[in-house]
Design a protein around this nucleic acid. Structure first.
Lengths: 193, 193
DNA sequence: GTCTATAAGTAGATAGAC
DNA sequence: GTCTATCTACTTATAGAC
């Protein structure tokens, strides 16, 4: 047949698109928007390099970035929602807090690629900033209680731990995750007010 | 005279070099290495744009990055050492701890440009990673005491607060710096062991 | 849906006049 | 020490055959 994939070099509809988006997200996170090249994405996907093979799927480099970010955000949202549902009902307050922190830390890990991308290309994808902050931000109406500040400190500590670990290429200052979480949970509770 | 700056277009030796390095650090921090263009640096310095005016001062873009980073690191080291000397001797432990945290937070602010650059171009300037971590890292020989972990938590929280504030474009979750520092200092002390 | 060929623009870098 | 002119390589993007 003339439409046989093996003879025409074509693949099932939509499958290549997904692989392009995954590879693109990788490259963008690694080297940023300007550092990324269409050729490199083509290379990782297995398309012909240096030619516009990719442009049959996306009209421009910017459109590729937008689509890759959108896909990543949607994917992470689903992942997080699923993980949340599994926790929630633990009796011991200290253990519940520790588990919550563990969740948040894993969320940071999940967001890693988007995180890096936001740092380098924040203004290029305004939607990106919002999407990320919906997860971390907690705006308290009215006056901030000490408890709100403590919660923010915990969140900042987890974000810092994640980032510093990433930079050092090992657990931050050699402190294992479990240890960090346990001490942090002990530090931030019990509530004072 | 034929050597008059006004007629030859030349400037005092070394002065242009400094202005180039400052402008380059700015651009690199803003858009990363690949995003930065020699032309943009020339524009900010006031040199002819689009031509290799800059190459009379630095042999390559990479050399420019290296020199800019080295200058920034040296400058920050001096600044920090000076700031440290001014604190140190406060009687009240709580207040001393709060002051220490304030110092660290300000250090993070100072390191901001290098910080961003390391996140985006970490592998391109290996020296950069080392230089930054000399300031934050604290490797404890032997077993980690709870106090060491608490100190790391404080450092991580300050780093996270700084970064999140940067991203949100305002104090993290609306919490003013003084409030954050005061609550954090209360949380991490007094030492338990 | 993938490939070859190629156009158009941009960025790093060099040579040489002033 | 700065400028004009220019080279080369790379990158985005398009046209069209298979």
């Amino acid at each position: 047949m003339t439409t046989d994939p093996a003879t025409t070099g074509s693949r099932p509809r939509g499958q290549t698109r997904e692989r392009i988006l995954e590879a693109a997200m990788e490259v963008f996170a690694e080297v940023g928007f300007s550092g990324a090249t269409i050729s490199e994405v083509e290379r990782r996907v297995g398309l012909a390099v240096g030619t516009g093979s990719l442009y049959r799927h996306f009209p421009s480099k910017q459109a590729l970035l937008d689509a890759a970010v959108e896909r990543e955000v949607a994917s992470l949202r689903a992942e997080m929602a699923q993980a949340r549902a599994a926790v929630a009902e633990v009796a011991d307050p200290l253990e519940r807090r520790r588990l919550g922190y563990e969740q948040s830390l894993h969320d940071f890990r999940r967001f890693d690629r988007l995180f890096r991308l936001m740092l380098t290309e924040g203004e290029r994808v305004p939607e990106l900033r919002q999407a990320i902050w919906a997860a971390v931000q907690r705006d308290v109406p009215g006056a901030l209680g000490d408890r709100d500040v403590v919660d923010a400190i915990a969140m900042a500590a987890l974000g810092g731990y994640h980032l510093f670990s990433l930079m050092q290429g090992r657990p931050f200052n050699g402190i294992p995750e479990e240890r960090f979480l346990a001490v942090l949970a002990g530090l931030t509770g019990p509530p004072e007010n």
